[in-house]
Each structure stands twice: as C-alpha cells, then as structure tokens.
Design a protein around this nucleic acid. Sequence first.
DNA 1: ACGCACGGGACACCCCGTTCCT
DNA 2: AGGAACGGGGTGTCCCGTGCGT
Lengths: 206, 206, 206, 206
Amino acid sequence: MRKGATTRELILEQTAPLFNQRGYAGLAMSDIMAATGLEKGGVYRHFESKEVLALAAFDHAIRRITDRLLGALQGKTSAVERITAILDFWDAYAIDPVVAGGCPVMNTAIESDDTHPALRTEARKVMDRYQRLIRRIVREGVSVGLLRDDLDIDAFASVMLSTLEGALMMSMLYRDPIHMTRATTHLAALLRGYVVAGTTRRRRSV
Amino acid sequence: MRKGATTRELILEQTAPLFNQRGYAGLAMSDIMAATGLEKGGVYRHFESKEVLALAAFDHAIRRITDRLLGALQGKTSAVERITAILDFWDAYAIDPVVAGGCPVMNTAIESDDTHPALRTEARKVMDRYQRLIRRIVREGVSVGLLRDDLDIDAFASVMLSTLEGALMMSMLYRDPIHMTRATTHLAALLRGYVVAGTTRRRRSV
Amino acid sequence: MRKGATTRELILEQTAPLFNQRGYAGLAMSDIMAATGLEKGGVYRHFESKEVLALAAFDHAIRRITDRLLGALQGKTSAVERITAILDFWDAYAIDPVVAGGCPVMNTAIESDDTHPALRTEARKVMDRYQRLIRRIVREGVSVGLLRDDLDIDAFASVMLSTLEGALMMSMLYRDPIHMTRATTHLAALLRGYVVAGTTRRRRSV
Amino acid sequence: MRKGATTRELILEQTAPLFNQRGYAGLAMSDIMAATGLEKGGVYRHFESKEVLALAAFDHAIRRITDRLLGALQGKTSAVERITAILDFWDAYAIDPVVAGGCPVMNTAIESDDTHPALRTEARKVMDRYQRLIRRIVREGVSVGLLRDDLDIDAFASVMLSTLEGALMMSMLYRDPIHMTRATTHLAALLRGYVVAGTTRRRRSV
DNA sequence: ACGCACGGGACACCCCGTTCCT
DNA sequence: AGGAACGGGGTGTCCCGTGCGT
C-alpha cells in the first residue's frame, strides 16, 4: 500500500482507470480485486456496492483531470491564453491521458446513456462544469474587449467541447493524436478569428 | 416454419439498436431472446456466439445508416450540396436516430477500445469509409474550382467527423439536439469560408 | 445399407446395442444418427419419437436374444437338458453377448425403474416370459417324473433368473465371466439335486 | 449463514437417492437444485461438477448402507449368524431400501458399464469389499470348524452376491419382495448344507 | 480492517428432440 | 431422406453481495 494513502484512495486510484477503460458493465468485482490486491471484504468495507464504487471512481477520475486542467490554467490570465491552455491540455491528453481510457465524461455518457441514470447524471454535471468554465473565460474575454462581442458564447463552448471530445474519440480509435491536433489547431484558429485586431500578437496561421 | 434468412434479418433488426444502446457487455443473450421472441436455440442457429452476433449487428446498423446517408446524397452534385446533405443528415440523426442509441461507430469505438479488438477494428474500418467519403467530396470540390485549394482536405474530414461525433454525444447526453445544430451550423460556415467567391449563390449566414 | 434390410431394420440393428449399453437417457439422437449414417429426417420417418424407437430397439434386442435361446433349446427334450441349455446360453452370453451391453431386461429394469413406465412394463413382460419358460420346463420335468415333486417351481424360476441376472451384472462389472460360470455351476448342481435318482446319467460333480 | 459442511451433507443426503433412482445421465442439475433448495451457485460451491457430485453421492449412499449393514452384524459372532444377518439385511432392503432406488452398486455397474469409467471403478471397489466381507466370514466359519472345508469360499461369495443383487432387481421390477425372499431362503439353505453336523441347533427348513 | 466461505442467480453456449420444407 | 429451423433444457462459469472469523 502506498505510504499515506488510505485504502479507500488506493481503491479509487486503481479502479478509476479500469472503469474508464472497460465501463461499468465490463468491469467485474474480480478485476477490482485483482487490481487492488484486496479481497471482496476489503472493497465492500469502503464501498457498499459496485455502483457506489463506480460513481466514486468517476468522481475520482474527474478530480484528477480537473486538478491537472486547473493547474494548466494557473497563471494564464487572458481569455486567449486560457482557452489555448485548455486546448494544449487536450492535446497532451490525446498523447498521454491523465486517466487511462479516454475522457471519463464521454465514456460514461456513451455507456450510461440508456442503462445507468445515476452515472449519466454525474457525467452531465461534469459536462456542465466544463461548459461553464469555457463560457466564463470567453465571456470575460468579450467583456474585456479582447474578443468580439458577436461571438456566440454558448455555441462556442458547445462546439469546442463537441470537437474536442469527438477528436479524442478519433485519436483513441486510431491510436493517433493527429485528430486531436487537427481539432485544437482548428479551434485555435476559430478563436483567433474572434480576437479584436491589435489586441494580441499574431501567431502563425495553421 | 420460417425461412432462415428472414429470421436472421429479424434478429439483426431487433438487436442492432440494443447493442447500440447498451453495448456489448451490457447486452445479455436473454435480452436478445426477449427482443426477438426466439429461444436460445433459434438465435444460436444463426449466430454462433454473442460476439459474432454483435459484429453482424454492428454491420447491420452501419448498413442502415449508410443506406440512409447515400439516399440523402442522391441527386446532390456539387461538393457544397453534398457536404450540406451530410450535415443535414446528422442534424436529423440527433433528433431521430436511424439506429437508436446514437452513432454505432462512436459507441463501439468507446466501448471496445480496451476490451474488444474485433469490434474496434470494425469501427475503425467504418470511420475510414466516412473519412474517405468526405475527402472524396471535398477533393472533387477543389478540383472543380468550387473550393479553395488551400483547404487541408484530410484535416477538414477529420475535424468535421470529430465535431459531428462529439456533438452527437453532447446532444444525447443532454437529450437536446441544440449541440448538433451548433456543430452543423459551425461546420457549414467553415465550409462556406472555403467556397471560391462568385461560384455559388450566397446563402444567408447562420 | 445392408442388402435386403429395410431402413427400419437397419436402424434397430444399429441402435439396439447402443440403447442397451448407454440407456435411454444416455443415448442421444445424434449418437443414433452417427451409428446409422442417417440424418434426423431419416430416423423420424420410421420412428415418431426417441421413445418409440427405444421401445422398438428393446423389442428388437429381445427378439434376437430369444431367437438365439430358442435355437439353443432346439432338439433338447428333457427338462434337465433344456435347463442346462439355458445355463449354457447364459455362460456364452457372459463371454460374448448377443446384444452388446448385457441383458436388456436387467438394464431396462434398472434404468427405467423410477423414470420410464413404458420401458419398465416392457421389461416386466419379457421377464414374465422368461419365468414362464423355466416354469414350463421344470413343471414338465416334474410331471414326467424326472424331477422331484417337492421342487418349488415358482421359487426355482425366480432364484434361477435372479442368480443369472446378478451373475451377468457381476461378470460385466469385473469383465470376468467367472461369476457367470460359478452361477451356472451352482444352478446346475441345484437342479441335479432335484433329479430323481436313476433317471439320468451322473455328470461329474462341480 | 450456513456452515459449508452442513450444506455439503444436505446435498449428498438429498441427491444420493436421486442418483440411485434416475442414474447419472437421468438426473439433471436442475433436479438437484429442486431437491436441495439451493441454486446452482450453492451446489457448485461444494461440488465442482455433476460428475464429482455423483461420485460423492455414490460414496454417501454406500456409507449409509454399510453403516446399516455393519450395525446388523453387531453382536453376531458365528459365521452362520453373520451370513444370516446379511441375508436378513437384504430381505429388509427389498421391502424398504436404505437408499431409495435399489442397490447403488448394481445400478451404477449397469449404467456406467460403457459410459462412465470413474463410476464403474467405484462400483467395483465396493463390490470387492462386499465379496471380501463374505469371504472373511465364511473363511472364519470354516477355520473354526463350523462350516465344511470343501466349501468354495470364492464361489460362495460370488454366487451369494449375484443371487442377492439379481433378486433385488427382480423385486424392484415386480415391486414384490417375494423374489428376494426366495433368494435369501435359498441361500440360507445353501449355507446350512455346509454346516458341519452337530455344531449348531437345527433351524426349521424353509 | 480485511480475508474468505457462502450462496443466489445471471450468463454463455451446447446440444437435444422434434418439426417442417425440400 | 436430407437438413434447416427452432423451442428448450442442459452444464458449468462467473458475478455480486453477505456475513463470519480473525
């Protein structure tokens, strides 16, 4: 057992990627036991059911991702810098995911769609937070005069997340980060199109 | 007694949406029996295993979608018209999917990523075809002089599919087609940006 | 197919030993198909069900055994000769059964006891005939003055058949005809004990 | 929760007569589940396969019978008393079997003959023990001078068991203990014929 | 806090017996 | 007579969760 880590955290740390890779239905308690080295008694002491564990593991995965993302935003002040940091984060994610198995939100959304309401609700909540984060950044950019005010903030957040999630799926399907690169490049260009002339230094167009 | 081919089609028709909604691991043979009204003997006569059936059901779903999509392309000649038809197809899909449960390619890509190589391979093949279709259309548009030749055809296809797949996931997660609408609107505008001035009648901007 | 044999007879000829060896529950239609070289359609054309076939196969086995036994009795006139012929028949049966798998009556009696009333009835009928045959012979021997009239005819037939059937079971269990030899030797001596002195030539005592 | 050993015994107690009545092929796991009130998981926890269970059930049945038989021999000292006790045991068995369905050894010998080597071996082992028991008793009777020394001990044991097993089959086939009575009466008389004159009080002849 | 025995029950797949069509 | 079709019961595996013992 890792020093200082409680058993509960150990379990989450080990199972979060497994749930992310194989899904709720595809992951068995026996896999969890094998991964944690615990027996059932040990696991059930901390989580009253597989479902509760799955929910907690999802939360854990999201927390890890969010921590990393917020870290990447640290010190980035302007909207463009912050959006760019997010795009960079996704680029990195496609090469080396924070949590193995792709984006937990998308994975959960796909699997739970018609089967597991609790997980679906959780995924939606996280997606809400992602949208709000982007909207907040963009709104700030607009209010500050960095971005044009004809930018449809809701649509931008929606399209940006759609494109990034879709591109992650493509990159994982092909085991090739190129699709993510193309998506982030495209989104960066899109954003640049809304930057008010003269407010920032030109980057080379892609 | 029923003709075998009929029963086989019946099974595929009934199970394709179920696999699409619940995934390979989430769908039990008993669900299949319930959906088809057949007993085990009947199902296993036509498909030697759940895996073989899942593969066939995936194929079936794709065929249904492809047929519909090709139908929508019927009579559309110019690249812009054809891409627009594809976008319209996705818009409609988000409201009323041809196969319940979202896009089989994305669903399969997500679930099979770390668990089911055969399904993953199949999903990749179909995604290849989608990419080739878009590239062919765009390439023709460029060669004909309708679209600017600085358009990165591969990147366009990649970004377009990423965006549409991601948007479908978002629309399903929120049970709200708005995300798809935003994605297609965005992609339509993107395409319009590459149309050579004077080659087509202006559409009202969206 | 054997010349002159109808398909029906071919089936019975092939399956009688199989039913005798493996029992009704232990023999599958697929075994029957393999043994006969026919497909299911062919078998069901002649026998409407496995049960009907099993009954017919039992009958067939009994007929073959009875034919052989009656052949062995041919020309034997005195009761002692006839009983001895029967004992010889059983001795030979233990070494090389007329129908593979032991005595169909005993096999059927054992298997069908709590499971298959129709077969049980059939077995009982045949056992009745066996008992009647022995009683008739012995009764004739008594009436002719060859055998003592204090011989309990019913008990003799019963004990004789019990001993022979039990001995056949033992010989098959041990794959050793010695048990049958001991039984027939014992029964021959028993019978001799009832022979009226001076009516027959002494055999060497065993 | 129940103790495992208890459940194991429960299963054996309930299934031993079932296997004895219907045979290995004729008894389904579902019958076992119905008889024990357990679900598959419960049964398979204690027995890894139907075959292993069948073997254990056979052992269990034999143990029950042996216990009863040894109990009947308790206090019986002379060879004649002991053999008589065994005959009485069989008489009682034909009326009310210790294990429903007849003699497990014979049943198993018959069914397993051409199908189940493991069971056959087991049946043979038990039959060996039966033979040894009788031989030992008779041998002791001879060495003590109670029985004549021209008695063929091996043949006596063999014939006695053949007769008893065969008679049990007959009694079960006819649902009439008379055949067993005749067999034991006969065997008692046979034994009496070997008693050295003057060593024991005459019993009335049967 | 954890290991482990326990057992209910779902699951996949096989194969059996029968029918129907050719 | 061949053989596809299919209802259905078969076995054994696995899975989840409980509760006892340490």
